[in-house]
Amino acid sequence: MSTAGPAATVLRTEFRLFGREPAALFWVMLSPTVLLVILGLIPSFREASEDLGGRRVIDVYVPVSVLFALIMAGLQAMPPVLAAYRERGILRRMSTTPVRPGAVLTAQLVLHGTAALVSSVLAITVGRIAFGVALPENLAGYLLALLLAVAGALALGSAVCAVSRTQKVSTAIGSVVFFPAMFTAGVWVPVQAMPDTLQRIVGFTPFGAASEALDAAASGGWPGWAALGVPALWTALLTGASVRWFRWE
């Protein structure tokens, strides 16, 4: 039996429990890459398109898959777990011990953030190996944009959890937010292929802006202030809202 500190033990326990949820594992870790592979199997998506400025559809869909992974982890997987922990008295039970229940929330954020990043790396790797999609040229810029997007997704998931009283409500709100999030991330129409006006509007959403930031870094540039600032601002707002409205029981 172990003698590790509380934070490490809580984190390890949460990772273990995550590993025991096949549905969560599939949707968070595999589905973004599966989406990419299915699209990549369509021959016309592997041909250069004039609408996309000479790029192929599959090139554009790598960042889309990355954002899809973030949405799955932050918005679909995390809120029901946290809501259930609250609903079943797990947080309350923990608050009667020397460890504060915030330790579980932190562990959940670290867990889903890590899962989102690993899933993103998997999608990027498969895109490179299977379909020859170029790796991000500005790696530091890409990483910065990615981390900001992860923070945005986790903050959004936390806010969903904070405003829902029960697990059912959090799943429902999560689904309602899910579709706009998917749309703005470009899952149906890549942001870069959207009409100008729509593209500008989508640029004010966390995932729309993140998509632009990832795209800029992928092609070697630095993401613009707006593309970085919008997800950062959303993260700050949503985190504030979560802290303000989260109830322990």
Binding site: T3, T9, V10, T13, G89, I90, R93, M94
Partner: peptide
């Protein structure tokens, strides 16, 4: 103070040993 709460649960997929290890880590 040790507490057993009315209607409290643990994570369904946590084993007894893991629960004991987890809660033991909370105490010095």
């Amino acid at each position: 103070l040790g507490v057993q709460l009315q209607e409290s649960e643990l994570q369904a997929k946590l084993t007894v040993r893991e629960a004991l290890d987890l809660y033991a880590s909370f105490y010095e």
